[in-house]
Write a protein that binds this DNA or RNA. Structure first.
Length: 551
RNA sequence: UGGGUUAUGGUGUAACGGUAGCACUACAGAUUUUGAUUCUGUCUGUCUAGGUUCGAAUCCUAGUAACCCAACCA
């Protein structure tokens, strides 16, 4: 393959359609139901639909599939729009299935007139009963015999609010013996005396998904209607309506939805996590929601890159969350400002340091020359990370130890001369000397050390709070695990650190800027930060070879 | 047990009858003032059994496994 990226199966279909002159331009759509927040699985669909349009010079509509007023809310509409935009996509039109309620009602009348739909008074249990099973055909009931006039009147009365919820439905008259259960006279309208977030109380009958989605595609002239695998059986019905209504022939294509290790990807389960307070909200940084990932520090670029890397196919998949982390590290490495923060401080006194303080410089980002330098104050008393010192180190440990030497990043080489302990034998301080000729950038000492540590000057240190996140679940594939998914929630998915000290440059931290805390990971300022307290979220750790060796 | 869909390294994804490639992971090494980054290298794969063919991941036959469908949800 001469460097050319191969096409996925949908791209192949589109290129064939375009080549055959079937369409001049393509039109796709992203059709969320506004009953929850978008998650990374939706991002896959968004990137696909908008990406295809972009690649082939077409357009994409954002269409809310709002046919069920009892679960849908404006709050969700707003969050969905914000998330799609944040991901970097612009829709051609903001549309709603509810825009088409009048058209859909007219379509239903047409079906009745063609004797292809009837009003059924059966209860939901009776309908289920009469439907049969996958191995036995269903039976049509007496209501299917109603005349066109009778059906027209009844349906009109349903619309007028004459009947209570659940007492009547409109059904398409197709085939009660079909092997595809969806073709066994599917319900297309039900009575719901519910307030709709857009149409208010205008309607008390609402179309079902199957009677709304395909027709909406058709009304908009969508050329390629892309959805997930579980809708495959719906395609037959989708086509049946288009054919019998004789409307624009949109086509449905299906791809496999995204599953990811150590998390859940269903709106129902995510809603449960929110409602039952396992997380702090839809935008909790542990959630796989777009808003959660945004708050955690993921960039839109990295999410798009991830969606590109996982590919599009028709087989079930379970993507290693490590791939997502790889993508975000890859981007953050290029753009984040380097800063030093000590999480668990151990005091160091430089016994031979005679100045009160001096200002040192260090690069903001070694990956980006234009990022410039920052000032870092150095003084006699510093903090380093407790875990960077060991009194009796194993062979492969090359950080600080008694008599040992390390470099302080951007500063000097120091040597540990004395370990100070409290009455209980805990190490509370290290007395060190520094090598004056080893100053960073003008080192003439000739000394080579194996390790470089991050540090902060004690007098200049800024206390900050850190939120460290771990995977949401304790098992890779919760769908394959026994019992309820909530049994597998990771109890330590959030660790809050209140002992951390940051270098003074971090006082200027702002939302949306990305930081790499040297040797610790990528962080961003949390929206709950204020003048008194800065809170940083860890987006992802750095790769840590030492942690692996150590284990 | 009716119908539908899918099977390629640990995980994803290519190949369109002609050298099984790429990415992530894992492992080994080089460089490094982040045990990061970067660079180099290594391991591991065509669900099974037959068949067609000079040649099969690809075509045929028969199995096997997984997922989806019996909501007035989408």
């Amino acid at each position: 393959m001469d460097g050319e990226k191969s096409l996925n199966f949908i791209e192949e279909i589109i290129e064939a359609d375009l080549a055959a002159g079937k369409h001049k331009n393509i039109l796709t759509r992203f059709p969320p139901e506004p009953n929850g927040y978008l998650h990374i699985g939706h991002a896959k669909s968004i990137c696909l639909n908008f990406g295809l349009a972009k690649k082939y010079g077409g357009k994409t509509n954002l269409r809310f599939d709002d046919t069920n007023p009892s679960t849908e809310e404006t709050e969700y509409v707003e969050s969905i729009k914000a998330d799609v935009q944040w991901l970097g996509f612009n829709w051609a039109n903001e549309l709603y299935a509810s825009n088409y309620f009048d058209d859909l009602y007219a379509f239903a009348i047409q079906l009745i007139e063609k004797q292809l739909a009837y009003v059924d008074d059966s209860t939901s249990d009776e309908i289920a009963e009469q439907k049969g099973t996958p191995t036995t055909a269903g039976k049509r009931n007496k209501y299917a015999e109603r005349t066109v006039a009778e059906n027209l009147q009844l349906f009109e009365e349903m619309k007028a609010g004459k009947y209570a919820d659940g007492t009547k439905v409109l059904r398409a008259k197709i085939d009660m013996a079909a092997s595809n259960m969806l073709m066994r006279d599917p319900i297309i309208y039900r009575i719901k005396h519910a307030h709709h977030h857009r149409t208010g109380d205008k309607w008390c009958i609402y179309p079902m998904y199957d009677f709304a989605h395909g027709q909406s595609d058709s009304i908009e002239n969508i050329t390629h209607s892309i959805c997930t695998l579980e809708f495959i059986p719906h395609r037959e019905l989708y086509n049946w309506f288009i054919e019998n209504l004789n409307i624009f022939p949109s086509h449905q294509y299906e791809f496999a939805r995204l599953n990811m290790t150590y998390t859940v990807m269903s709106k129902r389960k995510l809603l449960q996590l929110v409602n039952e307070k396992y997380v702090l909200g839809w935008d909790d940084p542990r959630m796989p929601t777009i808003s959660g990932m945004r708050r955690r520090g993921y960039t839109a670029e990295s999410i798009r890159e991830f969606c590109d890397k996982i590919g599009i196919a028709r087989r079930e998949n379970l993507i290693d969350i490590g791939l997502l982390e790889f993508c975000v590290r890859e981007h953050l490495n290029k753009i984040s400002l380097r800063r030093m923060v000590v999480f668990d401080p151990l005091k160091i006194t430089i016994t031979n340091y005679t100045q009160t303080e001096e200002i040192l410089f260090s690069e903001n980002n070694p990956e980006d020359e234009t990022a410039g330098n920052r000032q870092i104050p150095f003084s006699k008393e510093l903090y380093i990370e407790k875990e960077d010192f060991m009194e009796n180190p194993p062979k492969k440990f090359f950080r600080l130890c008694p008599e040992g030497m390390v470099r302080l990043k951007g500063a000097y080489i120091i040597k540990c001369e004395e370990v100070v302990k409290d009455a209980n034998g805990n190490i509370i301080e290290l007395k060190c000397t520094y090598i004056p000729e080893s100053k960073s950038g003008s080192d003439t000492s000739g000394i080579h050390v194996k390790s470089v540590l991050h540090w902060v000057s004690a007098n200049h240190a800024v206390p900050v709070e850190l939120c460290l996140y771990d995977r949401l679940l304790t098992v890779e594939n919760v769908d394959a695990a026994e019992g309820d998914f909530k049994d597998y929630i990771n109890p330590s998915s959030l660790q809050t650190i209140t002992t951390a000290y940051a270098e003074p440059a971090l006082k200027n931290a702002v939302i949306n800027e990305r930081y790499q805390f040297l040797r610790k990971g990528y962080f961003c300022l949390d929206i709950n930060s204020n003048e008194q307290k800065m809170i940083f979220n860890r987006t992802v750790t750095l790769k840590d070879t030492w942690a692996k060796v150590n284990k």
